[in-house]
């Protein structure tokens, strides 16, 4: 916890996107997340690593209130997005999720056309005034998702017909189509083969120019490759948070070191 506080002091307050203070998450009686304090920076890729069941996905899902859909889940503490408490009763989770997009572990395109997959978010948020604008958004988003060249000739074909890696990039494009500020990714490559993984990682690297990206991953190599900041979770605690280079080369906490060197996890 001490290191965590120190790390925070180094951060320029202007660049902080998410600030969490003493966050607790409970599933019924299970205390899944304990006292997590972390500052997530803008235009940075932050990786959450840790063994299975350590709570990193749970914590990620509390950042855009996806945990609200689980009746027994309960979140305490403060999570501030640009200084605003996202669990404030005045906050509509729907509005929050438009600002904080999410990409899931398994590619989950809608069983609709590629075009409609991308256009759905902008449509429900009223981001386009007419068809031409919507077309622009779709093209722009697919370009950002590094998928445009592969699908531009078959936008009306079902998104479910794409390959796994393409589907995941479609989901990323769908998430960026609503112009979010933060992109949460829950093990986005765990269902992909190495080539598709490399493509998605490259894409993540590009996305950080416009978004704050938070990625949960099981692969330490991936965390090392794509992230600038890394948070190590263990048994619901945030053990260590800092620059990725420092975490992987010179971890402060012995637990982090054990995990990185493969002795726990």
């Amino acid at each position: 916890m001490k290191d965590n506080m120190e790390g925070r002091k180094l951060v320029d307050q202007m660049d902080v996107k998410f600030q969490t203070r003493d966050v607790q998450v409970y599933y019924g009686d299970t205390h899944a997340i304990k006292d997590v304090n972390v500052d997530i920076l803008d235009k940075t890729v932050t990786a959450f690593i840790g063994p299975s069941g350590c709570g990193k996905s749970t914590f990620l899902r509390s950042l855009n209130r996806m945990n609200d859909t689980i009746p027994i889940a309960r979140v305490e503490g403060k999570i501030l997005l640009d200084g605003e408490d996202i669990y404030d009763p005045k906050v509509d989770p729907v509005q929050l999720r438009a600002k904080v997009g999410m990409v899931f572990q398994k590619p989950n395109p809608f069983p609709k056309s590629i075009y409609d997959n991308i256009a759905y978010g902008p449509r429900i948020h009223g981001l386009a005034r007419n068809k031409a604008e919507l077309d622009d958004i779709v093209e722009h988003s697919l370009r950002r998702g590094a998928l445009w060249d592969e699908v531009k000739d078959r936008l009306q074909e079902p998104g479910t017909g794409l390959s796994g890696g393409q589907q995941q990039r479609l989901c990323i494009a769908r998430a960026v189509a609503t112009e979010p500020e933060v992109l949460l990714m829950d093990e986005p490559c765990s269902a992909l083969d190495p080539i598709a993984t490399a493509q998605v990682e490259e894409l993540i690297d590009e996305l950080k120019q416009n978004f704050s990206v938070v990625i949960v991953t099981h692969s330490m190599q991936q965390a090392a490759r794509v992230s600038q900041k890394t948070a190590f979770f263990h048994l619901g605690n945030l053990v260590e948070y800092g620059d990725t280079d420092q975490i992987f080369t010179n971890p402060v906490d012995p637990r982090t070191e054990s995990y990185i060197t493969g002795r726990i996890g």
Partner: peptide, 19 residues
Amino acid sequence: SIREAALGVGASKMQTVFH
């Protein structure tokens, strides 16, 4: 996963169900 996908792009509960 379909519900999560819809909620993830900011659809409301009802939009998720009906769309």
